[in-house]
Design a protein around this nucleic acid. Sequence first.
DNA 1: CTGTTAGCGCATTCAA
DNA 2: TTGAATGCGCTAACAG
Lengths: 342, 342
Amino acid sequence: MATLKDVAKAAGLSVTQVSRALNGHSDVNPDTRERVKAVARTLRYQPNLSARKLVSGRSGMVGLVVPQAPDLASDGLFMEVVAGLSTQFSARGMQFVLHVARQDEPILPVYQRLIGHGALDGFVLTDPQEDDPRAALLAGEGIPFVVHGRIGSEPRHAYFDIDNECIFFDLAGHLIGLGHRRIALLNGVPGRTYVTARRTGFLRAMAGAGLDPDGAIIRNGEMTEALGLVSVVDLFAPGAAAPTAIICGNTRVAKGVYHAANALGLAIPGDVSVIAHDDHLATLKSAAFFPALSVSDAPLRDSWQPLAGCLAASLDGAPLKQAQIVGPHRMILRDSTAAPRV
Amino acid sequence: MATLKDVAKAAGLSVTQVSRALNGHSDVNPDTRERVKAVARTLRYQPNLSARKLVSGRSGMVGLVVPQAPDLASDGLFMEVVAGLSTQFSARGMQFVLHVARQDEPILPVYQRLIGHGALDGFVLTDPQEDDPRAALLAGEGIPFVVHGRIGSEPRHAYFDIDNECIFFDLAGHLIGLGHRRIALLNGVPGRTYVTARRTGFLRAMAGAGLDPDGAIIRNGEMTEALGLVSVVDLFAPGAAAPTAIICGNTRVAKGVYHAANALGLAIPGDVSVIAHDDHLATLKSAAFFPALSVSDAPLRDSWQPLAGCLAASLDGAPLKQAQIVGPHRMILRDSTAAPRV
DNA sequence: CTGTTAGCGCATTCAA
DNA sequence: TTGAATGCGCTAACAG
């Protein structure tokens, strides 16, 4: 591989000046810069990340650590995350690298090793939990990181998130507005910050409408088709005080709900209204549900650019505010929600 | 982070000696070594990989590059590979890192970037193709790599492989021995080396038995359930000279064959014998087929340790022979194969 | 068995 | 606008 010295020699300049020219410093003659860049291109020069990291503390490599899980790859979600981040970081001239931890291995030591090795500049954290220990570790070590989501009420970290509380407040609000009084929320695994936020938004809407808290039915679990299936079977068991509307954490859950409703002979929206939050995973199109699914819409694929941007900003030492972004969402009302049967 | 200097100071030794003690050099007093190790542990010392790489050319990081594919994650295969390699390299004190390339991006420049950055010691190549350009590039640059499979007839690279030609020779041989004369092979995508090897073994068995080459029916495609399904529907179309036995590239294909046979009212093994190669993916158990599937058996999960071992050996400059391993396989005959109906 | 010296490739002082 | 000198943390030659 060509080194900076090779380029310097070929350009008849000092290593110093070549370095400055390539790194876009201001105090370089424009002509010189162009010439240097041309030479570098000819020699196919690429900076040695190890050397750069050693001297400047930055290599341009960032990482994501995921615990190995058999079902991790089952839905398109994992690939969506990895592909999206990979693309966005490469677009910034950075390297995005994935580290899969063994399933039986505690996750914190993995981060500690990675930090200690000093090869990575920063991390992306997904699936944040309340008092997330990974965030605590990284913050303690002063390692930059960005969270897909928010940890705590006044986050002191870079993040991109959507306003989950607001979204689920709106979702519930829509159903309440239609006249529903008993509403079920099929929410994710407790402990995840977005699960809590959604629950809060949902309950706030219910309370705000002065509804009986018993009317707010919450089920938690991995947001798979199974959750929708099992919940509906259970909620509509004979003798149970069934809800008249169901809010699903995502469209996969909604699919389970549709299946179960179909099997039980429940009409949507006649017997039960269904609405979901839609991450826009390629595999599950809410508009193609029958009846077409009403949703709150916030494509996951719009997250990767701001996430990469926020981490890059953090690495550049930008003020925290600039690395904290809440993305937009919107309601798309289709045919799966209606006023409850009187 | 604690550096070598810190450890040296704490141990009252020179940096050099500490380095030697920690890296297991012979010329260190055993007492000293233990003391140094203890100090290092106390200080939570971890070597800076960038610094090490810079001076010694080795960081202990190896990588796998995969092109992003929407279906990549759909079966357990991808996770099996990543998790297996991750575990095995960790066990050797190495870091295994995954780089997902954008789908629209040519793959060679990705390797070139990664090589140029000089952060990785070597690569694992999966899904090798005839005259694989990645292997050519890496070999040309002198970058160590190990292939899951073999490229060319006299491979000059480290590899772990199974004897695909032999396996499919045996698979065909078993069917021929039962009296089958028209046998179909549902093989993978042409161009992959293992696909060619399997084809060769199959044809060799047919030719060796003096069978009409027309009796050897080969279909190629991604080895999914769809391939089995479509092939059977096609091969058993009215008027077609249907085979009496089918060899499937994997159990997923076999599943498709079973489905189609069932749908068409074909009895297994009465109307058609089915046999497959079994990678032992967790999601598809050949013994649980009905009727239980006869297979050649070579668990994919047994590949990761030798693969990691071969790459590590290459990095250590071991002779090529020691880094070329062909794993075992065995036949498991169950209930899906029988003599053809007369 | 141990320490001294040198240098990997690069970015960044400082001086010109 | 440019160049010379320094050091990031580590390993490897070379002494002793």
